[in-house]
Nucleic acid binder design. Structure first.
Length: 487
RNA sequence: GGUCCCUUCGUCUAGCGGUCUAGGACGUCGCCCUUUCACGGCGAAAACACGGGUUCGAUUCCCGUAGGGAUCACCA
Protein backbone atom coordinates (compact mmCIF):
# COMPACT_ATOMS: atom_id res chain seq x y z
CA UNK A 1 0.00 0.00 0.00
CA UNK A 2 2.59 2.60 0.99
CA UNK A 3 1.88 6.22 0.21
CA UNK A 4 -0.84 5.74 -2.34
CA UNK A 5 -3.48 5.87 0.37
CA UNK A 6 -3.17 9.62 0.65
CA UNK A 7 -4.74 10.08 -2.75
CA UNK A 8 -8.19 10.32 -1.23
CA UNK A 9 -7.90 14.10 -1.12
CA UNK A 10 -10.01 14.74 1.91
CA UNK A 11 -12.72 12.29 0.94
CA UNK A 12 -14.16 10.36 3.85
CA UNK A 13 -12.88 6.85 4.40
CA UNK A 14 -14.32 4.72 7.20
CA UNK A 15 -13.76 1.12 8.07
CA UNK A 16 -15.33 -1.66 10.05
CA UNK A 17 -12.69 -3.84 11.67
CA UNK A 18 -14.09 -6.86 13.49
CA UNK A 19 -11.93 -9.55 14.98
CA UNK A 20 -13.07 -12.94 13.74
CA UNK A 21 -13.42 -14.62 17.10
CA UNK A 22 -17.14 -15.21 16.72
CA UNK A 23 -20.30 -14.21 14.89
CA UNK A 24 -21.15 -10.67 13.90
CA UNK A 25 -23.03 -9.63 16.98
CA UNK A 26 -25.65 -6.96 17.22
CA UNK A 27 -23.26 -4.37 18.64
CA UNK A 28 -20.77 -4.93 15.88
CA UNK A 29 -23.57 -4.63 13.35
CA UNK A 30 -24.42 -1.20 14.69
CA UNK A 31 -20.81 -0.08 14.49
CA UNK A 32 -20.71 -1.31 10.91
CA UNK A 33 -23.96 0.50 10.16
CA UNK A 34 -22.70 3.82 11.48
CA UNK A 35 -19.47 3.49 9.51
CA UNK A 36 -21.39 2.55 6.41
CA UNK A 37 -23.88 5.39 6.74
CA UNK A 38 -21.26 8.00 7.50
CA UNK A 39 -19.18 7.02 4.48
CA UNK A 40 -22.17 6.95 2.15
CA UNK A 41 -23.48 10.23 3.51
CA UNK A 42 -20.22 11.89 2.56
CA UNK A 43 -19.81 10.03 -0.69
CA UNK A 44 -16.73 8.36 0.72
CA UNK A 45 -15.51 4.83 1.08
CA UNK A 46 -16.45 2.13 3.56
CA UNK A 47 -13.67 -0.40 4.04
CA UNK A 48 -13.64 -3.77 5.73
CA UNK A 49 -10.70 -5.15 7.66
CA UNK A 50 -10.54 -8.46 9.44
CA UNK A 51 -8.38 -8.18 12.55
CA UNK A 52 -7.09 -11.70 12.71
CA UNK A 53 -3.79 -11.15 14.45
CA UNK A 54 -4.88 -13.27 17.38
CA UNK A 55 -4.11 -16.55 15.68
CA UNK A 56 -5.36 -18.66 18.53
CA UNK A 57 -8.85 -17.18 18.56
CA UNK A 58 -9.40 -16.23 14.93
CA UNK A 59 -11.29 -18.77 12.85
CA UNK A 60 -12.43 -19.21 9.27
CA UNK A 61 -16.04 -19.90 10.24
CA UNK A 62 -16.07 -16.65 12.18
CA UNK A 63 -14.85 -14.74 9.15
CA UNK A 64 -17.53 -16.41 7.05
CA UNK A 65 -20.18 -15.57 9.65
CA UNK A 66 -19.17 -11.93 9.71
CA UNK A 67 -19.22 -11.59 5.94
CA UNK A 68 -22.53 -13.42 5.86
CA UNK A 69 -23.97 -10.94 8.36
CA UNK A 70 -22.62 -7.97 6.44
CA UNK A 71 -24.22 -9.20 3.25
CA UNK A 72 -27.51 -9.97 4.91
CA UNK A 73 -27.68 -6.45 6.26
CA UNK A 74 -26.55 -5.18 2.88
CA UNK A 75 -23.63 -3.19 4.21
CA UNK A 76 -21.70 -3.16 0.99
CA UNK A 77 -18.03 -2.42 1.53
CA UNK A 78 -15.62 -0.91 -0.95
CA UNK A 79 -12.53 -2.58 -2.29
CA UNK A 80 -10.83 -5.72 -1.12
CA UNK A 81 -11.08 -7.01 2.39
CA UNK A 82 -7.88 -6.35 4.30
CA UNK A 83 -6.64 -9.22 6.44
CA UNK A 84 -4.53 -7.80 9.19
CA UNK A 85 -2.40 -10.86 9.82
CA UNK A 86 -1.12 -10.76 6.27
CA UNK A 87 0.36 -7.35 6.99
CA UNK A 88 2.55 -8.39 9.92
CA UNK A 89 5.75 -7.57 8.05
CA UNK A 90 4.56 -4.04 7.41
CA UNK A 91 3.71 -3.65 11.09
CA UNK A 92 7.15 -4.85 12.12
CA UNK A 93 8.64 -2.42 9.66
CA UNK A 94 6.83 0.47 11.36
CA UNK A 95 8.10 -0.73 14.73
CA UNK A 96 11.62 -0.79 13.37
CA UNK A 97 11.18 2.74 12.07
CA UNK A 98 10.18 3.83 15.55
CA UNK A 99 13.19 2.07 17.00
CA UNK A 100 15.48 3.79 14.51
CA UNK A 101 14.09 7.21 15.27
CA UNK A 102 14.27 6.72 19.01
CA UNK A 103 10.49 6.68 19.46
CA UNK A 104 10.58 3.11 20.68
CA UNK A 105 12.87 0.90 22.70
CA UNK A 106 13.37 -2.71 23.63
CA UNK A 107 12.09 -3.90 26.98
CA UNK A 108 13.46 -7.09 28.48
CA UNK A 109 11.15 -7.32 31.45
CA UNK A 110 9.73 -10.81 31.85
CA UNK A 111 6.10 -11.64 32.38
CA UNK A 112 6.81 -12.63 35.99
CA UNK A 113 8.64 -9.41 36.58
CA UNK A 114 5.74 -7.35 35.25
CA UNK A 115 3.26 -9.33 37.27
CA UNK A 116 5.26 -8.62 40.41
CA UNK A 117 5.35 -4.96 39.50
CA UNK A 118 1.58 -4.82 39.14
CA UNK A 119 1.04 -6.69 42.37
CA UNK A 120 3.14 -4.10 44.13
CA UNK A 121 1.23 -1.25 42.52
CA UNK A 122 -2.05 -2.85 43.40
CA UNK A 123 -0.96 -3.31 47.01
CA UNK A 124 0.11 0.31 47.18
CA UNK A 125 -3.21 1.38 45.75
CA UNK A 126 -1.52 2.92 42.75
CA UNK A 127 -2.63 2.68 39.15
CA UNK A 128 -1.16 -0.31 37.40
CA UNK A 129 1.15 0.89 34.69
CA UNK A 130 4.42 -0.17 33.16
CA UNK A 131 7.03 1.76 35.08
CA UNK A 132 9.42 2.34 32.17
CA UNK A 133 12.22 0.31 33.68
CA UNK A 134 13.88 -0.25 30.30
CA UNK A 135 12.96 3.09 28.82
CA UNK A 136 16.34 4.64 29.43
CA UNK A 137 18.36 1.61 30.30
CA UNK A 138 21.20 0.43 28.17
CA UNK A 139 20.06 -2.64 26.19
CA UNK A 140 23.55 -4.00 26.74
CA UNK A 141 22.53 -4.69 30.32
CA UNK A 142 20.00 -7.21 29.11
CA UNK A 143 20.74 -10.83 29.75
CA UNK A 144 22.18 -12.30 26.58
CA UNK A 145 19.66 -13.90 24.31
CA UNK A 146 16.73 -12.70 26.42
CA UNK A 147 13.54 -12.06 24.46
CA UNK A 148 12.42 -8.47 24.22
CA UNK A 149 9.30 -6.58 23.29
CA UNK A 150 9.36 -3.23 21.58
CA UNK A 151 7.63 -0.46 23.48
CA UNK A 152 6.63 3.02 22.41
CA UNK A 153 8.59 5.80 24.11
CA UNK A 154 5.44 7.77 24.87
CA UNK A 155 5.45 11.35 26.11
CA UNK A 156 5.32 11.47 29.90
CA UNK A 157 4.32 15.06 30.45
CA UNK A 158 1.59 17.23 29.11
CA UNK A 159 -1.71 15.87 27.90
CA UNK A 160 -3.55 14.72 24.82
CA UNK A 161 -6.98 15.84 23.87
CA UNK A 162 -9.13 14.16 21.31
CA UNK A 163 -11.90 16.09 19.63
CA UNK A 164 -14.16 13.12 19.42
CA UNK A 165 -17.08 13.56 17.04
CA UNK A 166 -19.41 11.86 19.50
CA UNK A 167 -17.83 12.33 22.90
CA UNK A 168 -16.64 15.89 22.39
CA UNK A 169 -13.25 17.07 23.61
CA UNK A 170 -11.75 14.52 25.92
CA UNK A 171 -8.41 15.19 27.58
CA UNK A 172 -6.12 12.79 29.33
CA UNK A 173 -2.77 13.50 30.98
CA UNK A 174 0.13 11.69 29.38
CA UNK A 175 1.16 10.63 32.84
CA UNK A 176 -1.90 8.36 32.81
CA UNK A 177 -0.59 6.46 29.83
CA UNK A 178 2.32 4.07 29.87
CA UNK A 179 4.70 2.77 27.24
CA UNK A 180 2.59 0.26 25.36
CA UNK A 181 3.96 -2.75 23.62
CA UNK A 182 4.18 -2.49 19.86
CA UNK A 183 5.83 -5.75 18.96
CA UNK A 184 5.61 -8.86 21.08
CA UNK A 185 8.70 -10.84 21.96
CA UNK A 186 7.86 -13.27 19.19
CA UNK A 187 7.96 -10.41 16.71
CA UNK A 188 4.23 -10.22 16.05
CA UNK A 189 2.48 -6.86 16.25
CA UNK A 190 0.00 -5.95 18.95
CA UNK A 191 -3.43 -4.64 18.16
CA UNK A 192 -2.34 -1.07 18.95
CA UNK A 193 0.39 -1.08 16.34
CA UNK A 194 -1.56 -2.99 13.72
CA UNK A 195 -4.59 -0.72 13.93
CA UNK A 196 -2.58 2.45 13.59
CA UNK A 197 -0.53 1.18 10.68
CA UNK A 198 -3.48 -0.32 8.86
CA UNK A 199 -5.73 2.67 9.32
CA UNK A 200 -2.97 4.85 7.97
CA UNK A 201 -2.18 2.63 5.02
CA UNK A 202 -5.84 2.25 4.17
CA UNK A 203 -6.28 5.99 4.24
CA UNK A 204 -8.91 5.90 6.94
CA UNK A 205 -10.03 9.43 7.79
CA UNK A 206 -12.71 8.63 10.36
CA UNK A 207 -12.37 5.97 12.99
CA UNK A 208 -15.87 5.12 14.17
CA UNK A 209 -15.95 2.35 16.79
CA UNK A 210 -17.26 1.33 20.18
CA UNK A 211 -16.38 3.58 23.08
CA UNK A 212 -14.55 0.71 24.69
CA UNK A 213 -11.75 1.92 22.41
CA UNK A 214 -11.77 5.51 23.62
CA UNK A 215 -8.90 4.88 25.99
CA UNK A 216 -6.95 3.23 23.22
CA UNK A 217 -7.34 6.30 21.06
CA UNK A 218 -5.03 8.32 23.29
CA UNK A 219 -2.27 5.77 23.04
CA UNK A 220 -2.82 5.34 19.34
CA UNK A 221 -2.56 9.08 18.86
CA UNK A 222 0.83 9.07 20.58
CA UNK A 223 1.90 6.34 18.21
CA UNK A 224 0.61 8.18 15.15
CA UNK A 225 2.47 11.29 16.19
CA UNK A 226 5.69 9.36 16.73
CA UNK A 227 5.28 8.00 13.23
CA UNK A 228 4.64 11.49 11.92
CA UNK A 229 1.38 10.50 10.27
CA UNK A 230 -1.87 12.39 9.78
CA UNK A 231 -4.33 12.02 12.62
CA UNK A 232 -7.76 10.62 11.79
CA UNK A 233 -10.96 11.95 13.30
CA UNK A 234 -12.45 9.77 15.99
CA UNK A 235 -16.02 8.93 16.89
CA UNK A 236 -16.51 6.60 19.83
CA UNK A 237 -20.05 5.37 20.00
CA UNK A 238 -21.54 3.99 23.22
CA UNK A 239 -21.94 0.27 23.55
CA UNK A 240 -25.35 -1.35 23.52
CA UNK A 241 -26.59 -2.67 26.84
CA UNK A 242 -28.95 -5.50 27.60
CA UNK A 243 -32.35 -4.91 29.16
CA UNK A 244 -30.66 -5.31 32.55
CA UNK A 245 -28.41 -2.34 31.86
CA UNK A 246 -25.23 -4.37 31.62
CA UNK A 247 -23.02 -4.28 28.60
CA UNK A 248 -24.06 -6.59 25.81
CA UNK A 249 -21.19 -8.92 25.13
CA UNK A 250 -20.74 -12.26 23.49
CA UNK A 251 -20.99 -13.92 26.84
CA UNK A 252 -23.81 -11.73 28.04
CA UNK A 253 -26.87 -11.54 25.84
CA UNK A 254 -25.34 -10.39 22.58
CA UNK A 255 -26.66 -12.54 19.79
CA UNK A 256 -25.24 -12.95 16.33
CA UNK A 257 -27.19 -11.33 13.54
CA UNK A 258 -27.72 -14.82 12.13
CA UNK A 259 -29.83 -15.56 15.21
CA UNK A 260 -32.01 -12.55 14.50
CA UNK A 261 -32.44 -13.80 10.96
CA UNK A 262 -32.76 -17.55 11.42
CA UNK A 263 -34.14 -18.02 14.91
CA UNK A 264 -36.00 -14.83 15.68
CA UNK A 265 -37.26 -14.31 12.14
CA UNK A 266 -36.27 -10.68 11.71
CA UNK A 267 -36.01 -8.77 8.47
CA UNK A 268 -32.65 -7.08 7.81
CA UNK A 269 -34.22 -3.68 7.16
CA UNK A 270 -35.98 -3.91 10.51
CA UNK A 271 -32.77 -4.75 12.36
CA UNK A 272 -31.05 -1.89 10.59
CA UNK A 273 -33.82 0.58 11.38
CA UNK A 274 -33.91 -0.48 15.01
CA UNK A 275 -30.15 -0.27 15.38
CA UNK A 276 -30.10 3.16 13.79
CA UNK A 277 -32.71 4.49 16.20
CA UNK A 278 -30.82 3.06 19.14
CA UNK A 279 -28.73 5.98 20.26
CA UNK A 280 -29.60 8.21 17.34
CA UNK A 281 -32.70 10.01 16.24
CA UNK A 282 -34.03 12.30 13.57
CA UNK A 283 -36.85 14.26 15.16
CA UNK A 284 -39.86 12.05 15.74
CA UNK A 285 -39.15 9.77 12.81
CA UNK A 286 -39.46 6.10 13.70
CA UNK A 287 -39.23 4.41 10.32
CA UNK A 288 -36.26 5.50 8.31
CA UNK A 289 -35.34 4.04 4.95
CA UNK A 290 -31.79 3.30 3.92
CA UNK A 291 -31.91 6.28 1.59
CA UNK A 292 -33.16 8.61 4.29
CA UNK A 293 -30.62 7.28 6.72
CA UNK A 294 -27.80 8.06 4.32
CA UNK A 295 -29.17 11.52 3.82
CA UNK A 296 -29.74 12.26 7.48
CA UNK A 297 -27.06 10.44 9.40
CA UNK A 298 -24.58 12.45 11.36
CA UNK A 299 -22.20 11.60 14.16
CA UNK A 300 -23.11 14.65 16.24
CA UNK A 301 -26.58 13.18 16.75
CA UNK A 302 -25.29 10.00 18.35
CA UNK A 303 -25.94 9.97 22.07
CA UNK A 304 -23.10 9.59 24.53
CA UNK A 305 -24.85 7.31 26.96
CA UNK A 306 -25.31 3.59 26.37
CA UNK A 307 -28.74 2.50 25.15
CA UNK A 308 -30.56 -0.61 26.25
CA UNK A 309 -31.61 -3.20 23.75
CA UNK A 310 -35.39 -3.67 23.69
CA UNK A 311 -36.55 -6.85 22.02
CA UNK A 312 -40.21 -5.76 22.12
CA UNK A 313 -39.49 -2.66 20.15
CA UNK A 314 -37.45 -4.59 17.63
CA UNK A 315 -40.41 -6.95 17.18
CA UNK A 316 -42.68 -4.01 16.63
CA UNK A 317 -40.39 -2.44 14.05
CA UNK A 318 -40.09 -5.83 12.41
CA UNK A 319 -43.86 -6.13 12.26
CA UNK A 320 -44.02 -2.83 10.46
CA UNK A 321 -41.55 -3.93 7.82
CA UNK A 322 -43.24 -7.30 7.54
CA UNK A 323 -46.53 -5.64 6.69
CA UNK A 324 -44.95 -3.60 3.94
CA UNK A 325 -42.79 -6.41 2.60
CA UNK A 326 -43.36 -7.95 -0.79
CA UNK A 327 -45.55 -11.08 -0.64
CA UNK A 328 -43.40 -13.17 -2.95
CA UNK A 329 -40.38 -12.42 -0.83
CA UNK A 330 -42.23 -13.34 2.35
CA UNK A 331 -43.35 -16.67 0.92
CA UNK A 332 -39.72 -17.46 0.15
CA UNK A 333 -38.66 -16.45 3.64
CA UNK A 334 -41.18 -18.66 5.40
CA UNK A 335 -41.00 -21.60 3.00
CA UNK A 336 -38.26 -23.37 4.91
CA UNK A 337 -40.00 -22.90 8.24
CA UNK A 338 -43.28 -24.18 6.82
CA UNK A 339 -41.62 -27.23 5.32
CA UNK A 340 -39.96 -28.05 8.60
CA UNK A 341 -43.25 -27.81 10.47
CA UNK A 342 -45.16 -29.76 7.86
CA UNK A 343 -42.50 -32.37 7.31
CA UNK A 344 -42.86 -32.15 3.55
CA UNK A 345 -41.70 -30.03 0.67
CA UNK A 346 -43.89 -27.21 -0.55
CA UNK A 347 -45.38 -27.60 -4.01
CA UNK A 348 -46.48 -24.93 -6.45
CA UNK A 349 -50.05 -24.97 -5.14
CA UNK A 350 -48.79 -24.41 -1.62
CA UNK A 351 -46.79 -21.38 -2.65
CA UNK A 352 -49.75 -20.09 -4.57
CA UNK A 353 -52.09 -20.31 -1.64
CA UNK A 354 -49.49 -18.77 0.66
CA UNK A 355 -49.03 -15.85 -1.62
CA UNK A 356 -52.74 -15.22 -1.92
CA UNK A 357 -53.17 -15.29 1.82
CA UNK A 358 -50.08 -13.26 2.62
CA UNK A 359 -51.78 -9.82 2.69
CA UNK A 360 -54.01 -10.99 5.55
CA UNK A 361 -51.43 -13.18 7.21
CA UNK A 362 -48.73 -10.55 7.54
CA UNK A 363 -50.95 -8.22 9.49
CA UNK A 364 -50.96 -10.79 12.26
CA UNK A 365 -47.26 -11.44 12.65
CA UNK A 366 -44.29 -9.53 13.96
CA UNK A 367 -41.70 -12.05 12.88
CA UNK A 368 -41.22 -14.76 10.29
CA UNK A 369 -41.84 -17.57 12.78
CA UNK A 370 -45.30 -16.32 13.65
CA UNK A 371 -45.97 -15.62 10.01
CA UNK A 372 -45.06 -19.19 9.10
CA UNK A 373 -47.04 -20.81 11.89
CA UNK A 374 -50.01 -18.61 11.12
CA UNK A 375 -49.94 -19.84 7.53
CA UNK A 376 -49.71 -23.52 8.33
CA UNK A 377 -53.42 -24.27 8.43
CA UNK A 378 -53.74 -23.41 4.75
CA UNK A 379 -51.24 -26.12 3.93
CA UNK A 380 -52.51 -28.89 6.18
CA UNK A 381 -53.87 -32.04 4.70
CA UNK A 382 -57.31 -33.26 5.78
CA UNK A 383 -58.26 -34.02 8.36
CA UNK A 384 -56.42 -31.03 9.80
CA UNK A 385 -55.19 -31.01 13.39
CA UNK A 386 -57.18 -28.99 15.91
CA UNK A 387 -55.83 -27.10 18.85
CA UNK A 388 -57.50 -27.35 22.27
CA UNK A 389 -59.42 -24.12 22.05
CA UNK A 390 -60.86 -25.15 18.67
CA UNK A 391 -61.89 -28.52 20.07
CA UNK A 392 -63.55 -26.88 23.04
CA UNK A 393 -65.36 -24.41 20.83
CA UNK A 394 -66.65 -27.14 18.56
CA UNK A 395 -67.80 -29.20 21.50
CA UNK A 396 -69.69 -26.34 23.06
CA UNK A 397 -71.20 -24.97 19.86
CA UNK A 398 -75.00 -25.14 19.67
CA UNK A 399 -76.23 -28.37 18.14
CA UNK A 400 -76.66 -28.32 14.44
CA UNK A 401 -75.00 -24.99 13.81
CA UNK A 402 -72.03 -26.35 11.97
CA UNK A 403 -74.19 -28.64 9.89
CA UNK A 404 -76.48 -25.77 9.03
CA UNK A 405 -73.51 -23.67 8.01
CA UNK A 406 -72.29 -26.48 5.82
CA UNK A 407 -75.66 -26.63 4.18
CA UNK A 408 -75.75 -22.92 3.57
CA UNK A 409 -72.29 -22.89 2.03
CA UNK A 410 -72.84 -26.01 -0.01
CA UNK A 411 -75.52 -24.21 -1.93
CA UNK A 412 -73.00 -21.72 -3.22
CA UNK A 413 -71.28 -22.43 -6.49
CA UNK A 414 -69.70 -19.05 -7.09
CA UNK A 415 -67.31 -19.38 -4.13
CA UNK A 416 -66.54 -15.76 -3.31
CA UNK A 417 -66.03 -13.83 -0.10
CA UNK A 418 -69.13 -11.74 -0.78
CA UNK A 419 -71.50 -14.65 -1.31
CA UNK A 420 -70.09 -16.65 1.59
CA UNK A 421 -70.42 -13.64 3.83
CA UNK A 422 -74.01 -13.12 2.69
CA UNK A 423 -74.93 -16.75 3.22
CA UNK A 424 -73.51 -16.77 6.72
CA UNK A 425 -75.33 -13.60 7.68
CA UNK A 426 -78.60 -14.90 6.31
CA UNK A 427 -78.18 -18.10 8.27
CA UNK A 428 -77.40 -16.24 11.46
CA UNK A 429 -80.45 -14.09 10.97
CA UNK A 430 -82.68 -17.09 10.26
CA UNK A 431 -81.46 -18.83 13.36
CA UNK A 432 -81.67 -15.67 15.40
CA UNK A 433 -78.03 -15.79 16.49
CA UNK A 434 -75.10 -13.48 16.10
CA UNK A 435 -72.82 -13.88 13.16
CA UNK A 436 -70.03 -14.95 15.46
CA UNK A 437 -72.13 -17.92 16.59
CA UNK A 438 -72.01 -19.20 13.07
CA UNK A 439 -68.55 -18.01 12.12
CA UNK A 440 -66.60 -19.33 15.09
CA UNK A 441 -67.45 -23.04 14.75
CA UNK A 442 -66.75 -22.81 11.03
CA UNK A 443 -63.47 -21.11 11.73
CA UNK A 444 -62.51 -23.84 14.17
CA UNK A 445 -63.43 -26.50 11.64
CA UNK A 446 -61.61 -24.91 8.79
CA UNK A 447 -58.49 -23.53 10.48
CA UNK A 448 -58.17 -25.81 13.50
CA UNK A 449 -57.91 -22.71 15.63
CA UNK A 450 -60.05 -20.00 17.16
CA UNK A 451 -58.18 -17.16 15.61
CA UNK A 452 -57.36 -16.58 11.99
CA UNK A 453 -57.68 -14.07 9.19
CA UNK A 454 -61.20 -13.10 8.14
CA UNK A 455 -63.20 -16.31 7.82
CA UNK A 456 -64.70 -15.65 4.42
CA UNK A 457 -61.35 -14.74 2.93
CA UNK A 458 -60.02 -17.97 4.37
CA UNK A 459 -62.86 -19.97 2.83
CA UNK A 460 -62.39 -18.34 -0.53
CA UNK A 461 -58.65 -18.94 -0.49
CA UNK A 462 -59.11 -22.55 0.56
CA UNK A 463 -61.64 -23.18 -2.17
CA UNK A 464 -65.04 -24.87 -2.17
CA UNK A 465 -64.01 -28.49 -1.98
CA UNK A 466 -61.38 -28.09 0.69
CA UNK A 467 -63.57 -25.82 2.81
CA UNK A 468 -66.62 -28.06 2.71
CA UNK A 469 -64.43 -31.08 3.25
CA UNK A 470 -62.89 -29.61 6.38
CA UNK A 471 -66.33 -28.78 7.75
CA UNK A 472 -67.45 -32.35 7.04
CA UNK A 473 -64.38 -33.63 8.89
CA UNK A 474 -65.36 -31.60 11.91
CA UNK A 475 -68.94 -32.74 11.65
CA UNK A 476 -67.83 -36.35 11.58
CA UNK A 477 -65.67 -35.72 14.56
CA UNK A 478 -68.42 -34.21 16.72
CA UNK A 479 -70.92 -36.83 15.70
CA UNK A 480 -68.80 -39.73 16.81
CA UNK A 481 -68.81 -39.21 20.59
CA UNK A 482 -72.47 -38.22 20.82
CA UNK A 483 -74.82 -39.54 18.23
CA UNK A 484 -77.85 -37.96 16.77
CA UNK A 485 -77.29 -34.45 17.93
CA UNK A 486 -77.06 -32.81 14.55
CA UNK A 487 -80.08 -31.37 12.88
C1' G B 1 -9.24 1.94 43.29
C1' G B 2 -7.03 5.54 39.12
C1' U B 3 -8.59 7.86 34.58
C1' C B 4 -12.48 9.13 31.22
C1' C B 5 -17.69 9.40 29.92
C1' C B 6 -22.99 9.55 30.85
C1' U B 7 -27.92 10.88 33.51
C1' U B 8 -35.74 13.44 30.03
C1' C B 9 -41.73 8.48 30.94
C1' G B 10 -40.33 1.03 32.39
C1' U B 11 -37.37 1.28 27.34
C1' C B 12 -35.58 4.12 22.69
C1' U B 13 -35.78 9.16 22.07
C1' A B 14 -37.45 14.91 20.70
C1' G B 15 -35.84 19.17 23.21
C1' C B 16 -30.13 22.61 21.71
C1' G B 17 -32.55 29.66 27.96
C1' G B 18 -38.59 31.65 27.53
C1' U B 19 -42.67 27.92 22.23
C1' C B 20 -42.66 22.63 28.22
C1' U B 21 -49.59 22.49 31.49
C1' A B 22 -42.15 18.52 28.52
C1' G B 23 -43.51 15.90 22.19
C1' G B 24 -43.14 10.94 19.50
C1' A B 25 -42.42 5.54 19.51
C1' C B 26 -42.39 0.55 21.99
C1' G B 27 -44.60 -1.60 26.16
C1' U B 28 -49.00 -1.23 29.69
C1' C B 29 -54.32 0.01 30.41
C1' G B 30 -59.23 1.64 28.40
C1' C B 31 -62.52 2.60 24.25
C1' C B 32 -63.85 2.23 18.96
C1' C B 33 -63.84 -0.86 14.55
C1' U B 34 -65.24 -6.17 14.33
C1' U B 35 -67.23 -13.13 12.85
C1' U B 36 -62.02 -14.52 16.10
C1' C B 37 -57.05 -12.79 16.32
C1' A B 38 -54.64 -8.99 14.36
C1' C B 39 -54.21 -4.35 11.63
C1' G B 40 -56.10 0.48 12.14
C1' G B 41 -58.25 4.70 14.98
C1' C B 42 -59.00 7.35 19.65
C1' G B 43 -57.65 8.08 24.70
C1' A B 44 -55.14 7.27 29.68
C1' A B 45 -51.30 6.46 33.25
C1' A B 46 -45.99 7.34 32.86
C1' A B 47 -39.94 11.31 32.90
C1' C B 48 -36.55 16.41 33.13
C1' A B 49 -31.77 11.83 39.47
C1' C B 50 -30.70 15.33 43.77
C1' G B 51 -28.47 19.92 45.76
C1' G B 52 -26.25 24.46 44.81
C1' G B 53 -25.21 28.35 41.57
C1' U B 54 -25.38 31.70 36.64
C1' U B 55 -29.66 34.36 34.69
C1' C B 56 -35.28 38.53 34.57
C1' G B 57 -36.05 33.24 33.44
C1' A B 58 -33.65 26.88 33.60
C1' U B 59 -35.13 20.31 31.05
C1' U B 60 -31.64 23.30 28.37
C1' C B 61 -25.23 26.63 31.00
C1' C B 62 -21.57 25.78 35.43
C1' C B 63 -20.18 23.14 40.07
C1' G B 64 -20.99 19.31 43.65
C1' U B 65 -23.55 14.67 45.32
C1' A B 66 -25.68 10.17 44.04
C1' G B 67 -26.30 6.53 40.41
C1' G B 68 -24.72 4.21 35.83
C1' G B 69 -21.07 3.07 32.09
C1' A B 70 -16.08 2.42 29.71
C1' U B 71 -11.11 1.22 30.51
C1' C B 72 -6.62 0.02 33.09
C1' A B 73 -2.81 -7.45 29.19
C1' C B 74 3.20 -9.64 25.20
C1' C B 75 -6.58 -9.76 23.76
C1' A B 76 -8.48 -7.25 20.18
Amino acid sequence: MGASQTDTHGAVVTRFAPSPTGFLHIGGARTALFNYLFARHHGGKFLLRIEDTDRARSTEPAIAAILDGMRWLDFEWDGEIVYQFARAARHAEAAQQLLDTGHAYRCFATADELEAMRAEQRAAGKPMRYDGRWRDRDPAEAPTGAPAVIRLRAPQTGSVTISDLVQGDVTVANAELDDMILLRSDGTPTYMLAVVVDDHDMGVTHVIRGDDHLNNAFRQLALIRALGWAEPSYAHIPLIHGSDGAKLSKRHGALGVDIYRDVLGMLPEAVENYLLRLGWGHGDDEFISREQAIGWFDLAGVGRGPARFDQKKLESVNGHYLRSADDVRLVELIAGRAEAALGRALVADDRDILQRSMPELKKRANNLNDLASGALFYLRIRPIPMDDSALRLLASAPDGLLGAAHGAFAGINDWTTELLDGAARRLAEDLGVKLGQVAQPVRAAVTGSTSSPGLFEVLETLGRNESLGRIEDALARTQQPEEGVTA
